[in-house]
């Protein structure tokens, strides 16, 4: 097995629902290899999105160890986590989460504002990435002028523009038709195979698991199987 980029040991997470404590993750142990493409699957409420949020550093575990590239991110402060995310994580959301007041190019440029790149470099880089995802002719289009599939490709461009260590995708095809979903999955697969990006994807879509090389099943907050994909 190659070097694990994500190492999770006895990870637990609970939420309060009113006065009731809901244990969402019950001692998860998981390793994700660098350059891997992992699909997290499971029924609603199984804890897969919570696990993804913890790996992405937008939530903190109650108990357990969560190490990304050797760094225990559960010990970082909010500001340090924000900086870590900006440098190491690319996000892809189910509903794209693009800024409606920004054009496709400006949306992709957004994470680069946190870098030291000058305006010209930022613009050049955003354009190149958009061309790579097949949207070179949609630079000045606002999200509401793009189809769902195109918006998701803009979101993918935004996720990879900073060259992150890890890409996390939460139901990236959940809001797309079959063709658009296929395009998006192919693009993710290319990022994984050509650019060597480590991708962790939450999905309900069985066909989406075909692009992954590892499928992790969760149920009721527990990891019930961890198998190599038969792609």
């Amino acid at each position: 097995m190659t070097t694990p980029i994500v190492e999770i040991t006895d990870l637990r997470k609970s939420y309060f629902r009113g006065e009731q404590v809901v244990e969402v993750l019950k001692g998860i142990n998981l390793k994700v290899s660098e350059g891997g493409f992992t699909a997290l699957m499971g029924p609603s409420g199984s804890g897969k999105s919570t696990l993804l949020n913890l790996i992405a550093g937008i939530d903190k575990p109650d108990v357990g160890s969560l190490t990304i590239s050797g760094l225990d991110i559960s010990s970082l402060s909010e500001n340090d986590l924000a900086e870590w995310r900006s440098n190491n994580v690319g996000f892809i959301f189910q509903f794209y989460n693009l800024m409606p007041v920004l054009t496709a190019e400006q949306n992709v440029e957004l994470p680069l504002l946190l870098s030291d790149l000058d305006a010209k470099s930022r613009k050049s880089r955003s354009r190149t990435i958009l061309e790579m995802v097949g949207l070179g002719d949609r630079l000045d289009h606002y999200p509401n002028e793009l189809s769902g599939g195109q918006q998701q490709r803009v979101a993918i461009a935004r996720a990879i523009v900073t060259d992150p260590t890890l890409i996390v995708a939460d139901e990236p095809t959940g809001d797309l038709d079959r063709n658009s979903a296929s395009d998006v999955l192919n693009l993710l697969q290319r990022l994984n195979s050509e650019a060597g990006k480590t991708i962790i994807m939450v999905t309900h879509d069985i066909s989406a698991t075909h692009v992954a090389n590892e499928v992790v099943h969760l149920d009721k907050g527990e990891l019930i199987s961890n198998e190599a994909s038969n792609k």
Binding site: E83, S86, N87, L112, L113, L114, S115, D116, L117, D118, A119, R125, T128, M132, I160, T162, D163, R190, L191, E194, A195, G196
Partner: peptide, 19 residues
Amino acid sequence: RLYIWIKANSYLTKHPTSR
């Protein structure tokens, strides 16, 4: 091609500036 491009442009400093 994508991989080569990203690696060639991977320098990003950790501290945001006032841009």
